[in-house]
Design a protein around this nucleic acid. Structure first.
Length: 144
RNA sequence: UAAGUGGGUCGGGCGGUCGCUGGAUGUUUGAUACAUCCAGAGGAAAGUCCGAGCAGGACAGGGCACGGUGGUGGCUAACGGCCACCCGGAGCAAUCCGCGGGAAAGUGCCACAGAAAGGACACAGCCGAUGGCCUUACGGGGCACAGGCAAAGGUGAAAUGGUGCGGUAAGAGCGCACCGCGGCGGCGGCGACGACGCCGGCAGGGCAAACCCCACCGCCUGCAAAACCAAGCAAGCUGGUCAGCCGGCCCGGUCAUAAUCCAGCGGGUAGGUUGCUUGUCUGCGGGGAAAUCUUCAGGCAGAGCCGGUCGGCAACGGCCGGUCAAGAGAAAUGAUCGCCGCCCCGAUUCGUCGGGGUACAGAACUCGGCUUACAGACCCACUUUCUUU
RNA sequence: UGGGGAAUGGUGUAAUGGUAGCACAACUGACUCUGGAUCAGUUAGUUGGGGUUCGAAUCCCUAUUCCCCAG
């Protein structure tokens, strides 16, 4: 039976952890969210989410975080091990509902769990590829 | 039957799979991991508009300043909250709305318009009965000198009570009727106040959500408060001692004569535990060397909730019984699937089928309120109208 | 989380309770062969909802949005 646990130690918790991931400067984006990757040299991966206030109400921001964590929990077997991931939601949610547009037509509100899973796979693949390339260049540089 | 008013309750349900947080037990480890059991968001958790608890300010006192409240009586730990009543306004009514003390303590403002916005009757004006002067055909006529008057003044939100009749030279509460207003008296009410009777012909405009006055209340800061542990930097510089602190001022109080004090600069950490989620006692058991910690069971105390009963119009209070106790910390309370509810749309062989929707919103020290947001569902009481009896 | 403050044309800002003003921008016209500059004119405003007042940008209540500070 597969384990799909997402324990406390697999979360990015401290401010220094988040700063370290951002300082690695290896990211990919699809216009709605942005994923940063860094090596952590552990035998498991860690994950953190940041949802700015402009994305919506508190309830909705909570839902975004839960969806992202759930996607990571179910997909972590297919991801390379020993890395820190930091997902940032970047897009601004539409303001108060006008008579023209109902309030729940933003790009995030039509988001389902399956699409979030697709996002995560896509972003992690692209960012991982970049990380590999940076690593390769660096080791080459060190060899010289 | 239709329309409406007020109050209250709920705010999807069941099951499968995979997960998260806290606690207990068991196995285990260098940190830990795994298994079982139990518990795990709301009526507004929200806004942060008030009031308390709690913590600190060395003591936590008084006055001033400043701020808040503002009909009366009650409830409450307290409140700007709640209940009942009074007054004013809206509505046919149920009912709703009102920061609703003082303008005769003082100051200020009242633009434009208007004679005038509070100072007189100054301006403009009316009359000139009475007295005076002139004239006369002796019937009277004229002048506006004395004097009388406050009605009328294109205004304005507001103009020295209003309407009507009488009255007069012209007028006027000058007189009368009704309405308004003020004072007095006893009566009803705890009181705000009310109704009645008598008297007064009428005081003297509005604004206090302008300053202010009166009454009452309020020390200040806030769990990122505060305490402890660990790590780490520095042990330096400047100023003070008649100081400094009690956050504005005074009284009063306190530490205290010089560092191990205070303030500022510089430097360094920004990790953990407690606070923190009912409290306390007893019993059995478990951990620990001990202090002590803790599961479970029972009792007690509570400002939680529900039901009953008593007092009260009610808010609320007393008694009895039952029930429930979330505790995260880059921040848990979830994701997905199936079935069933409810609403809408389209088909319908009236058996159903398909599609869509199911609100507002997420605890952060804890309570009592207020305000704001909200798909829908249900209950109770009442008012008006229609129909029937 | 706690504290403090603000909201005025598209933008930046003034206004003792009494006609909402100024500058830039936009538009129109004049000047010019055309554009710029200049001149003349126009449009467009007190964050929403209540209340006090004869009358609120201003005073009071309430909601919304934004900004600053502490750590």
């Amino acid at each position: 039976m597969k384990r799909h646990a997402f324990k406390k130690r697999m979360r990015l918790a401290k401010n220094s952890d988040f700063r370290a991931v951002l300082a690695r400067k290896c990211s990919s984006s699809n216009g709605l969210a942005c994923l940063y990757v860094a090596e952590n040299y552990l035998n498991y991966s860690r994950f953190g989410v940041s949802v700015p206030k402009r994305c919506g109400s508190s309830v909705f921001r909570n839902r975004l975080k839960r969806l992202a964590r759930e996607a990571f929990r179910l997909e972590q077997q297919n991801l390379p091990c020993g890395r820190d991931y930091f997902l940032i939601f970047t897009l601004k949610s539409p303001k108060k509902a006008t008579s023209e547009s109902p309030p729940k037509c933003g790009p995030y509100h039509s988001l389902t769990f399956d699409r979030m899973r697709q996002w995560l796979l896509d972003l992690t693949a692209r960012a991982g590829k970049r990380l590999d390339r940076i690593q390769h260049d660096k080791t080459d540089g060190c060899d010289e």
